[in-house]
Design a protein around this nucleic acid. Structure first.
Lengths: 201, 201
DNA sequence: CGATGTTTTGAGAGGATTCAACCACAGTGG
DNA sequence: CCACTGTGGTTGAATCCTCTCAAAACATCG
C-alpha cells in the first residue's frame, strides 16, 4: 500500500464510534476487531469481526454517512489508515478494484441476510452452535484445537442475540454432551459434525 | 436504458429462486416484489421489498454465486432485464456507476445490519410497530391514508420473524388502542407517533 | 355451492429472560 | 498484608413472551 499511516490499538480500545464521521477506512494488519451496533437499550449487537486482511469503515465512507457501527479491538491491533479520497478514486478509476470491493460488499450483504433469517427462525441453542462453527471456520484453532478467538460470555451473547445467562447454560450443556471443552474463555470444539447438526447446517 | 428486454410477472409468480444461477439482474419498472430466504424448516423470511426504480439480483451477478434469495411478485410487475456482462462492464468502466452501485449496496448493508440488531433485541410487538412505520415510509399511503402495500398476515409474520397468530393478536391490539385501522389486508395508520414510540424509534 | 386458503380465537407448553445471590479472581490502596 | 472493589462467571427460581396446536369463522373463486 502506498499510504502507510499505521495505528496501533490496545485490546479494549475503540477505533471509531457509531454516529461518528469517518475520515477514511482502515485495513487490518494484525489483531481482531469486533464490530457492533448499540441498540435502543444500550445493549450491543455484534455484527461481525474483522481480522488481518479485512477492511472496516468503508461503508460509511462510500455512503458518506456517519458510522452505523462501533469498532473495538479485542486483541492488540495494527491498522493501516487510508483517507476517503483514495478510496473513492480507486472505485471510480480502477475498474478491477471496484469489482473486488463490490464483491466484498455483496459477500457481507449475503451473510447479513442469512443471519437475519437465522436469528429470526432459529432457537438460541441452534444459533450458538452455528456461531461456534463460524468462529472456528473464520479464526481457526491453535495447535491444541482451541479456538483462536476468545470472547467473554457476554460477547457471545451479543453475537447470538440473547442473555449472558443463556449462553452460560447452553455452553455447559454443550460441554456435558461432549460437543465442546471449556477452559475459561478457551473453547475447544470436540464434535464439529454434532454441532453442525445441532445448528441445522 | 439500452436493453429493453421487459418481462411481465403476475401477482404470485416467482422471478427467480434461491439457489438458481442468474443470467443478469433486473430493474423494476412497476409493481412490487418480495425478496425472501427460505429457512431450514421451509419458513420464509422476507428480507426486503423492491418497487419501481429498485434493482434485484445484482448481488448474485457481482458475486457470481447462485441467488441467495427467492423473488416473487406480490403485485403485477414489469421488469427490465439486463445481462450480466453489461453490469460488470458498467462497474469496471464507468466510475460514477460503480460509486452509485456501491452506495446502493452499502445502503442495503446498513439496513440489514440495523435489522439484525432489531430482530435480536426488540420484542415482536416493537418490531411489528417498526415494520408498519417502514412500510408506510417506503410505499406511502393512498388518498384515504391506507398503506399502498397490502400483505397477508403470514407475510407480515415473515418480515417480523414471528408466527402468523402473533401478528393477528398484535394487529388487533394495535387496533383496539387506536394506533391503526384494519380492513382485511388494508391497514391505515392512525397514530404514527404512537407507533414510533412503541417501536422505540 | 363446495373447495381452498386466510383470518381468528383459545388454551397449553416451552423457551428464554429477568432478578438475585454467590463465587472466583485480579487490581487497588490503605 | 489484607480488606475493598469491580468484573466476569455460575446457578436457581419465577415470570413472561411467543409458539404451537386445534378448531371455527370467513372469504374468495371457479
Amino acid at each position: 500500500m502506498l499510504n502507510k499511516i499505521t495505528e496501533t490499538y490496545k485490546r479494549g480500545s475503540i477505533i471509531y464510534r457509531q454516529g461518528n464521521r469517518i475520515k477514511g477506512f482502515c485495513c487490518v494488519r494484525s489483531g481482531i476487531i469486533k464490530i457492533y451496533q448499540t441498540g435502543f437499550d444500550g445493549k450491543e449487537q455484534i455484527i461481525r469481526f474483522a481480522k488481518v486482511g479485512d477492511i472496516i469503515g468503508y461503508r460509511s465512507v462510500i455512503s458518506s454517512e456517519p458510522a452505523c457501527t462501533t469498532t473495538e479491538a479485542i486483541k492488540d491491533t495494527v491498522l493501516c489508515h487510508i483517507p476517503t479520497e483514495i478510496l473513492l478514486n480507486l472505485v471510480k478509476n480502477n475498474g478491477d478494484f471496484a469489482v473486488e470491493l463490490m464483491k466484498l460488499t455483496c459477500k457481507e450483504l449475503g451473510e447479513a441476510n442469512a443471519y437475519i433469517t437465522d436469528i429470526a427462525q432459529k432457537t438460541v441453542k441452534e444459533r450458538l452452535a452455528e456461531i461456534l462453527i463460524h468462529l472456528d471456520e473464520e479464526f481457526g484453532e491453535d495447535t491444541l484445537g482451541v479456538l483462536n478467538i476468545s470472547l467473554t460470555r457476554e460477547e457471545l451473547a451479543n453475537i447470538v442475540g440473547t442473555a449472558t445467562e443463556s449462553i452460560i447454560r447452553l455452553l455447559s450443556e454443550f460441554r456435558s454432551k461432549n460437543y465442546i471443552e471449556i477452559n475459561g474463555r478457551k473453547i475447544k470444539i470436540l464434535d464439529k459434525p454434532g454441532l453442525k447438526h445441532l445448528a441445522n447446517i
